[in-house]
Design a protein around this nucleic acid. Structure first.
Length: 153
DNA sequence: GCCAACGTTGGC
DNA sequence: GCCAACGTTGGC
């Protein structure tokens, strides 16, 4: 069982978009960073839990919880020339990029803002608050996950 | 809009 | 293999 933080710009795909999706499930596409790719391909498993986080929003905030509902599998948007995420280096045989499916568990009653997260000692070592963190998916500890959930309820 | 941090690219 | 240039992310 792993715990993750999934970061998304709400203008691109918000938690409300996820809520409106069929079965409140979506494929987490567009990851084009090798470290994040490795997490999705090699480590993420069905049943894993995650925090859904809105970046580039006012304020930046954790807004809910999700669960992983698939193994990592090739991100087909990389093969689609019409996709923003098209990567001409990818083929069906060598997909390079991977994604997982995630399902909404619960929207927080109140968003847990980045300043609030930064104010908690328990979350001081979370990668989210690490300087220069740019990964759009990364692991968090069970304690960090539970603390953010507690703050959001 | 600015800029720090970081990943990637490509010339050498 | 080095590293400068460039693009992107994301908080502020």
């Amino acid at each position: 069982m792993n715990y993750w933080l999934f970061k998304s710009e709400p203008l691109a795909f918000s938690i409300d978009d996820l809520e409106k999706s069929e079965n409140q499930t979506t494929y987490w596409d567009g990851i084009r960073n090798y470290q994040a790719r490795n997490f999705l391909r090699d480590t993420a498993k069905p049943g894993d839990l995650g925090i859904y986080y809105h970046s580039n929003s006012e304020p930046p905030a954790a807004v809910g919880t999700v669960t992983v509902v698939s193994e990592g599998y090739p991100d087909f948007t990389a093969l689609d020339p019409n996709s923003d995420y098209y990567d001409p280096a990818c083929t069906e045989e060598k997909p390079v990029w991977y994604m997982v499916d995630i399902k909404l568990l619960k929207k927080f009653k109140k968003p847990v803002t980045l300043p609030e997260i930064k104010s908690k000692d328990i979350l001081a070592n979370c990668r989210l608050v690490a300087k220069g963190n740019r990964l759009s998916v990364f692991p968090v500890t069970e304690e960090e996950f539970n603390e953010i959930v507690r703050l959001g309820e």
